[in-house]
Amino acid sequence: MATSTPTGSVLPRDEVLFDRSLRTRWRLGFDRWIGWLLPLLFLVAIVPIVDLVYFVVRAAYPVLSWGNLTNTQPYANQNGNAVGLALIGTFDLMAIATAVAVLLGLFGGIATAEFLSERSAGWVRTSVNMLAGTPSVVVGYFGYFAFVLYFGWGLSLIAGALTLSFFMVPYIFRTVDLAYTSIPRPIREAALGSGARPYQYILKVGTPIAFPQVLTGVFLAMAIGLGETAPIVLTTLPSLLVPSSLNSGVTFLTYLIYDGFNHPSTGPGSNELAKAFEAAFLVMMIVIALNVVVRVFAARYKKRLEGLYQ
């Protein structure tokens, strides 16, 4: 059973590599087309993002100024577009929420990865996933009932920050859990086999290995927290003053966005809509900055861990 090939030679049938069947031709064609299609789809995805960034930057540009960013008196500037107050408010909220979330996420994640039995760990992971999937307004109501009413802290910086931390804990928890469980088993066993107690293993061996991932989780959780609006609106009170205590009211960046669109032109001589765009621009910049920091850190630490357990 010999067949001639397009190059002219005659070969036994099962040695022939050419294949002109329809199916093969279709598959090869598909492979070629998908090579064009994917960049196209990427463009489709990127265009709205670029457009969004452009839209926000254009709207925010006229009112962006150092004076507006640093002035904490909301209606003081001539055009009344100072966002310093909200910038500080967001910083305060994020600082407290991050501290609380890192503490809970880190301890919870390490405990789940290292100390809990498979079964209890499964339950904890499921609960955390449920928390992550809860609609933010529901979490906001919970924060309202728990912190504002039950603990009696009122609409306040601390109530808002703790509610905010609920959104960050799952992300930090999950990255910490994953970071520690993905450390090669033999590395863990070698540490314990050298006579280390589990906490010594975690401090001296596990943490240096898990650190880059943990840091990534923390930064991404901050980016998530930064965008949350509704739950903090529900648990804080907008204020015209820089927070002076945990019970103070607080104005924050996403509140300006929310408020600017609801009441586009309130306030003496101010343009709340421009202010909303200014705030949106800042949130966007901070999120981008966080992501850049994550990438730089991750790349650097990856290099340092190269060759681990080859």
């Binding site: 066993e189 070698a190 010594q200 681990l308 080859q310």
Partner: peptide, 22 residues
Amino acid sequence: FQRPTVFPMSVFENAAFGLRIL
């Protein structure tokens, strides 16, 4: 173990690991 299980630290600290925890 079958494959080397060095920790991400210096040569010295690797060898010193068991002593440090003591």
